[in-house]
Amino acid sequence: MAGSRGNLGKLGKAGIGAGLLSLGLILSACQHGPPDPTPAPISSPATAPGAPVHFTAQGDIGVSTGARKVLDVVAGLKPHLNLTLGDFTYKAGIEQKFCDMVTGSLGADFPYQLLTGNHESDGHDGDIEKFVQCLPNKLPGVQGVYGTQWQADAPEQNPVVRFIMVSPGIDFRDGQPLDYSKDSERWRWTADAIDEAKSQKIPWTVVGMHVPCLSIGNYGCPAGHEFTNMLIEKKVDLVLSGHDHVYQRTHQLGVGGQCPELVPASFSAGCLTDTDSTMAQGSGTVFATIGVGGVGLYNVNADDPEAGYFASSSGKNRNPALGTLHVTATAAELAARFVPAEGYTFSDSFTLQRR
């Protein structure tokens, strides 16, 4: 990732082979038996524009047996790409070891797409610059600064989903967070990416950021309540995060009418727009935290003031599970399910349907 973090121009195609120049990828079968230090890489032939997109997402990974179990799940699901939501090694100096673990499980050509977490954004527990060197962007048409703030459409031609990956609420090398305050450059970049997706009639908009705002785990709202409300106001379909080492998924939330804005650390029933597992697009936004990519889990707090917003949760003290979210996006539907790693049983699923 060369150049300044403030450069929000196009990155373009980042060193991928001709077979990866279309995002719509169908992965060939990947055999998993006893640990193999040099497993065969997963091949990635292209599919037609407008084809369904299968992706996985999780954060807070580490370099451990748990992380490898989650990677095994990802490999078995054969997604077209993985959104990695920050906090990779929890230790400085082992970036290459992490990258080798990933490529050993998924193959060197698999789009294991990075977004920095707070542990590597400022370099104290790894360096995002080094991670993006050994796990570079593998998607065509990426715009922004890969690893920090970027967007991509999938497939690149006639897309069914736009991914917008941003980094509010975490510190970088100068000890300061990037500016996502209202009407700042990064606020406008995010808002414009959402608006453009809607103007181009891309069916689904997915925003990823390391830190959540709503949580019944350990943290408050580092992402910022104004930024979070902007995502809801613009009717982003799905917001993904890590940071809290739990799985938690909200009902569909909306603002307006009985909910002028969503206020963290409180609950308003007026912000709930749909509380079953099959929801209509445009009614609100679903927030999912998947901080269960391999590291130790946190407790979930049923007495948290925000608990009424959540439809499903898993933590150290309730249905503990490592795993990944698996999402299938088509022109008509966004269907998601939590898939646990070996040895765990917790599950969750929800669907958004276009009107």
Rank of each mutant, 00 (worst) to 15 (best):
V300G: 05
D87L: 02
V166M: 15
V236Q: 11
A14I: 11
T250I: 03
P159Y: 00
G169Q: 08
P35W: 14
A2C: 04
D100C: 04
G6C: 12
F338I: 03
G126V: 04
T250N: 10
V263R: 12
H225M: 04
S347T: 15
G284W: 01
P39D: 11
A40R: 15
A29E: 14
Q281H: 08
K10V: 09
G169C: 03
L85C: 02
V70H: 09
G256Y: 02
Q31L: 13
F287P: 00
A223K: 05
F287V: 00
D303Q: 15
V102P: 04
R249T: 05
F163A: 15
G9Q: 10
E156F: 08
H54K: 14
T148W: 09
D153A: 09
L81M: 13
R162I: 11
S349A: 13
F346G: 07
L297S: 07
L20G: 01
K201F: 02
K97N: 09
L8M: 08
D87E: 02
D179V: 15
G123E: 00
S28R: 13
G284R: 01
P305H: 05
P177K: 07
S241R: 00
V246I: 14
T228L: 02
R318I: 06
G15H: 03
N317F: 11
T278D: 13
R173N: 14
I42P: 12
G284M: 00
P39E: 07
H210T: 03
P49R: 10
R5W: 07
G117R: 07
P37Q: 12
L322R: 12
R318F: 13
G144R: 12
L253H: 12
E156C: 01
H225S: 06
L334G: 14
D171Y: 06
E129R: 05
P49A: 06
A302F: 10
I128T: 00
G50L: 14
R173Q: 13
D127G: 01
A302T: 12
A332P: 01
G24N: 10
M101V: 09
V211W: 01
D125G: 05
A197T: 03
G123R: 06
F88P: 15
C99D: 07
D244H: 11
L106W: 05
T84Y: 11
P35C: 04
I232E: 04
L11N: 01
P260M: 04
A197G: 08
Q176E: 10
P305E: 06
